[in-house]
């Protein structure tokens, strides 16, 4: 069951995007989320789409892989489109059948907004497809570092994130194992009335919690035995390195922003 989740799973490769500093990728995504809202006509949306496509091709992640991973989210995009089709009643009437009608403005808005939504999802999935979760964590820790001054526990947060990432596969395996053990004891997880299925979750969740607490305790002991005592005085093994490619990618995004501002109406 768990195995089928492909959305956002890291795909190892040696592309330009893969080799970029996670900090620059995070900054670019953040800025992209902002500049998407500048676009308001076909030309500017077209520019955004081209930019996204260039990014995808640079990442060397097979396109069908991205699409198959996006399937669950596509419904949301489609839903956005339909919502606008039905609810916006401005501009010329394009189509009418009984109570159901589509207006020009509704179609335009629907397409633009779902495209905006779609591009955002594409860009963020390029981030997660080309960056290991731990790189993202490191990038975030580094970007958020200034917050240390206001006593924000950046190191602890990053450590928590990296440990959670480390244990996700372990917990998935464990969930699978307990599910099978309870299925063998007659629990039916996949059919029957909703009420029974909700009840079936209890024999899964309780062992999972109990085991996780035990894990956490043992892990804490092991960490202490290995000399962990908080972020102070710690050195770092993984290093981030900002290169020319990172600067150029940011410049590239700057040019896109300028074009968007220039061509918006």
């Amino acid at each position: 069951m768990m195995e089928k989740m492909i959305f956002g799973r890291y795909v190892p490769a040696q592309s330009l995007i893969h080799r970029m500093d996670p900090r620059s990728k995070l900054v670019i995504i953040f800025l992209f989320v902002c500049i998407v809202f500048i676009a308001n006509n076909s030309l500017t949306y077209g520019l955004l789409a081209i930019y996204t496509l260039v990014m995808i091709s640079l990442s060397k992640v097979p396109f069908r892989f991205i699409i198959s991973g996006l399937k669950p989210v596509l419904w949301l995009v489609l839903f956005t489109l339909l919502l606008h089709l039905f609810l916006t009643k401005e501009g010329e009437l394009l189509f009418q059948a009984g109570w159901f009608s589509i207006y020009e403005e509704g179609l335009r808005q629907g397409i633009f907004i779902s495209l905006r939504f779609f591009l955002l999802i594409l860009m963020t999935s390029i981030l997660t497809l080309t960056t290991t979760p731990i790189e993202i964590t490191d990038g975030l820790e580094n970007l958020l570092h200034p917050l240390n001054k206001v006593k924000f526990p950046v190191h602890e947060l990053a450590l928590m994130m990296s440990i959670s990432l480390r244990f996700i596969p372990t917990l998935m395996q464990e969930t699978d194992k307990i599910m099978k053990a309870q299925t063998a004891r007659g629990v039916d997880f996949s059919s029957g009335p909703i009420k029974d299925r909700v009840k079936a979750i209890i024999p899964l969740l309780i062992p999972l919690f109990v085991n996780s607490f035990k894990r956490a305790e043992e892990l804490a002991t092991a960490m202490e035995a290995r000399g962990y005592r908080g972020g102070e005085g710690r050195t770092k093994y993984r290093q981030l390195s900002w290169g020319i490619k990172d600067t150029s990618m940011l410049v590239f995004l700057g040019i896109l922003t300028a074009l968007l501002v220039l061509f918006r109406t």
Binding site: K177, I178, A181, Q182, A184, I202, P203, P207, N211
Partner: peptide, 11 residues
């Protein structure tokens, strides 16, 4: 079936 470490299924 008695799975490996079956004590993990107690709840």
């Amino acid at each position: 079936i008695v799975f490996q470490f079956p004590e993990h299924q107690l709840f």
